[in-house]
C-alpha cells in the first residue's frame, strides 16, 4: 500500500534505543505541540532518522494523532524516514551552483555511487541528496559532505572526495557492482 517511502524493519536493540532517545527529547522539551519540531529534530539527531516507532511515541506523548506527526515529518526537508548512509553527500542546487554545474556534480555522484538522489548505497556507506542553497554561492558548485562544505566541485573533484573516504573509483558501470569495496 505504500508509495515512495520504504520502512526498514528495526534492528535488534533498536527499539530500546528509540525509546531512550524519545524519552530524552521529552525530558528536554515539554510535551506540547509547539515543541513538536524541536523534539523531532532532537530524536533525529540521535538516531539519524525518524523511525515510525519514535513518531508514534511522540504522538502519544503529545496526545495527537500519529498521522499528523507523520505529515509533518514528510513535509519538511530536514526529516528523513530512512536510515542515512555513513557519509551523507548533499549537492547544492542553488541558482549559482546549478548554473555552473551542480547538476553535473550530482550526476557524477550518482554514477560513481550507483544510486540516485535521495537514495542510500546498499552497504549504507553513502547517501546522496540534493539540497536547496547552502549559501556558499561564490564557491559554486558546492557539495556538503558530512557537514563539510566542498567548493568548486568539478567531476574530477567528485572522485577526489570519494577517494578521500576510501571509496574505490571504478567506471560507472562497475561502480554499482563494487559497492562498499575499500570503504572506510
Amino acid at each position: 500500500m505504500r508509495k515512495g517511502v520504504v520502512f526498514l524493519p528495526l534492528l535488534q536493540g533498536e527499539e530500546e534505543l528509540i525509546r531512550k532517545s524519545v524519552d530524552k527529547a521529552l525530558r528536554k522539551h515539554e510535551a506540547t505541540r509547539e515543541n513538536l519540531i524541536p523534539i523531532l529534530l532532537q530524536v533525529q539527531e540521535a538516531l539519524g532518522y525518524l523511525p515510525g516507532l519514535a513518531m508514534e511515541q511522540i504522538a502519544a506523548a503529545l496526545k495527537m494523532p500519529a498521522v499528523e506527526v507523520y505529515g509533518l515529518a514528510t513535509f519538511y526537508n530536514q526529516f528523513r524516514l530512512h536510515p542515512p548512509g555513513k557519509h551523507q553527500v548533499k549537492v547544492c542546487m542553488g541558482t549559482a551552483c546549478y548554473m555552473v554545474g551542480g547538476r553535473i556534480a550530482l550526476e557524477c555522484f550518482e554514477r560513481r555511487l550507483g544510486i540516485k538522489e535521495g537514495e542510500t548505497t546498499p552497504d549504507r556507506e553513502f547517501s546522496l541528496e540534493r539540497v536547496a542553497c547552502v549559501g556558499c554561492c561564490t564557491m559554486a558548485p558546492v557539495v556538503v559532505v558530512d557537514e563539510h562544505v566542498e567548493g568548486k566541485v568539478t567531476p574530477t573533484r567528485v572522485d577526489g572526495i570519494l577517494l578521500s573516504f576510501g571509496k574505490a573509483i571504478a567506471s560507472g558501470a562497475e561502480a554499482a557492482g563494487k559497492k562498499g569495496e575499500g570503504a572506510s
Binding site: 505541540r33 509547539e34 519540531i37 524541536p38 509533518l72 513535509f75 526537508n77
Partner: peptide
Amino acid sequence: IFQGSGAFVCGEATALVRSMEGKMG
C-alpha cells in the same frame, strides 16, 4: 532561536508562524 526544518514556503509569514506552532508550514 527556533530552527526551521527546511521548507522554502516557511519564509511566508503565516507559514512561518504555523511551523513555530508545530504544524506544517
